[in-house]
Simulated scan of single mutants.
Amino acid sequence: MTALRLRPEDPADAGPVRRVLAAAFARPDVATPPEVGLVDELRDTDAWVPELAMVAEYGGEVVGYALLTRVRVRPERGGDAPALAFGPVAVAPQRQRMGHGTAVVQAALDAATELGERLIVVLGDPAFYRRFGFGRAGELGLTSPWAGLGEPWQALVLPPSTSEEGPPPRGEVLFPAPWSRV
């Protein structure tokens, strides 16, 4: 029986990741979905955290992907605080509804927790992300260009790595430039 293997992306995965993203986000009106370019561009920024780009491999083939990249939260007063943004998350169409998406998302969340991260934001399906503990980002005092979309604008507070850490940051979430093209 073939098992799903979850691991950080390595440079040789770039092509297979592009193929998974292109298939998962395919639309008849677009030759290449913007999610493909987003990942390619994010790889070349300081937002990229190699340990947080996770692939799901089945039978030696990349079939799923979940990416967490750096964003900043700008409070009304004080300096920016670090946070992460989820996305894109994709599973090859022939492997969807088999638990691969859930597994690769959980692997990324586990890796972020291990790194001591505190806050993750996402614009996505509330029914999917709720199972991981995500809730309305607005209720945590987080805004963004997508905050007006309501429920899909979500956030997750990870457990603090030390008992001395205060509450998660509140304010405007600032995304790296590649996000403005999606």
Rank of each mutant, 00 (worst) to 15 (best):
M1G: 13
A3K: 12
L6S: 00
L6R: 04
P8F: 11
P8V: 12
D13S: 03
G15Y: 08
P16S: 12
P16I: 06
P16V: 07
R18F: 04
L21A: 09
A22V: 01
A22D: 05
A23H: 04
A24S: 02
A24C: 05
A24M: 02
A26P: 13
A26N: 10
R27E: 02
P28A: 13
A31S: 15
P33Q: 10
P34A: 04
E35T: 00
V39I: 13
V39H: 07
E41W: 00
D46E: 14
W48N: 07
V49G: 08
V49T: 15
A56G: 09
Y58G: 11
Y58M: 15
G59V: 06
G60N: 04
G60E: 04
E61V: 13
E61Q: 15
V63P: 01
V63F: 05
Y65C: 09
Y65N: 15
L67C: 09
L67R: 05
T69W: 02
R70Y: 04
V73G: 02
R74A: 07
P75F: 03
E76H: 01
R77E: 13
G78P: 00
G78E: 04
G79P: 03
A81D: 14
P82Y: 11
A83K: 10
A83C: 12
A83T: 12
A83I: 15
L84N: 05
A85P: 02
F86L: 06
G87L: 04
V89H: 00
A90Q: 06
A92L: 10
R95E: 14
R95N: 06
R97P: 08
M98W: 08
M98F: 03
T102D: 12
T102Y: 08
A103C: 07
V105A: 03
V105F: 06
A108Q: 01
A108R: 01
A111D: 00
L115I: 10
G116K: 13
E117R: 10
R118P: 12
L119M: 10
V122G: 01
V122C: 02
G124L: 01
Y129E: 09
Y129K: 10
R136N: 12
A137G: 13
G138H: 01
G141N: 03
G141T: 05
G141D: 07
L142S: 01
S144H: 09
S144C: 08
W146G: 03
W146I: 01
A147C: 08
L149T: 07
G150I: 14
G150H: 13
P152S: 03
Q154S: 01
A155Y: 10
P159M: 12
P160G: 14
P160W: 13
P160I: 14
S161Q: 14
T162N: 11
T162R: 14
S163N: 09
E165I: 12
P167L: 13
R170N: 08
R170K: 13
R170S: 10
E172N: 00
E172T: 00
L174M: 00
F175Y: 11
A177F: 05
W179R: 04
S180W: 09
R181L: 00
V182T: 07
